[in-house]
């Protein structure tokens, strides 16, 4: 069997969820729960997953979900963790599953505090690079060059994508990792490592949004593989905030191949694509230096 994935035959999601066709965030949850199993409580702040799980009285997941306010995913998870610990239920995992808005922007305060306390939770950010649930507005995770409804083509986003993994790694929590849904086995392994971490674990997941990226839905996996191979979203882990390990050597495909598949980048000129390529190369250089020692 080629995929290790196929060894995890149990599913923890029901069919019939409300995600758009080709939703990376929905698929990311499928993978995460395969790794974590039944003994998991999921905290979902305001994000696409608030809707995907189904309107009241429906529920998609086969584990309990607490829907909470936008900025509170990390701290509600901490609260649940404290409650479970005082009751001796230390074998139940608490997973905060938030979008990029609820992690990098409005939710960063609570997340930073949870990391500083090193509370034993797993915080997974499924990053679709904009506030998709409210209609594709820009977030600090929106990359340079992207169109969003608040960064229209005439004034596309000029700021770079906020590097949340680096920020969280600086908290020196035991485990930080980036993952892409195009690499399901790798993602599952990372969640399993997160479960073993002696403290807070943070996983930044590349989760494409065909609706918001103006992309064909069938490219959900291909784009997630291209992002890694073009070095736009490298796969790496940081242990205790200091030890960097790169998990996958990218194929070094020019970033243009990644950008051209998405309508949100269709307005970019050659020069702007060059800027992106240079930035991507530069970031990769920094990362490889860190990984060397």
């Amino acid at each position: 069997m080629r995929w290790q994935f196929a060894n995890y035959t149990q599913e923890y999601m029901n069919q019939g969820h409300l995600a758009c066709p080709g939703c990376g965030g929905a698929y990311a949850m499928r993978l995460a729960l395969k790794a974590l199993g039944k003994n998991t409580i999921v905290v979902i702040p305001a994000c696409c997953w608030s809707i995907i799980d189904g309107p009241f009285p429906l529920h998609c997941l086969k584990v309990p979900v607490y829907h909470t306010a936008f900025e509170t995913a990390a701290v509600v998870a901490s609260g649940i963790r404290a409650a479970l610990d005082i009751k001796g239920k230390t074998d139940i995992e608490v997973l905060a599953f938030a979008g990029d808005g609820g992690t990098l922007d409005i939710g960063i305060q609570a997340l930073s505090a949870a990391c500083e306390r090193n509370d034993k939770i797993i915080y997974a950010c499924y990053d679709n690079e904009a506030y998709m649930n409210t209609g594709i507005q820009r977030s600090s995770a929106t990359p340079y060059g992207a169109w969003t409804t608040t960064t229209p083509r005439e004034n596309f986003k000029k700021e770079r994508k906020k590097n949340i993994s680096e920020i969280i790694a600086a908290h020196r929590i035991p485990y930080v990792a980036t993952a892409s849904i195009g690499f399901p086995d790798d993602l599952i392994v990372k969640f399993k490592k997160a479960k073993e971490a002696k403290g807070t674990a943070f996983i930044h997941i590349f989760a494409p949004c065909p609706t918001g990226w103006r992309m064909a839905p069938e490219l959900m996996i291909t784009i997630s593989q291209l992002a890694v191979d073009c070095k736009v979203f490298p796969l790496y882990e940081v242990f205790d905030g200091v030890k960097y390990v790169i998990n996958y050597q990218p194929k070094n495909i020019p970033v243009k191949e990644y950008l051209k598949l998405q309508g949100r980048f269709s307005h970019l000129t050659e020069k702007e694509i060059e800027i992106i390529q240079r930035e991507v190369d530069f970031n990769w250089e920094i990362l490889t230096k860190k990984a060397k020692g």
Binding site: N14, Q15, G16, H17, L18, D53, G54, F56, P57, L58, H59, C60
Partner: peptide, 13 residues
Amino acid sequence: LAISWETTLINKT
């Protein structure tokens, strides 16, 4: 309170 009592299996997408 608003707590679910059904799975999304009834939602034939």
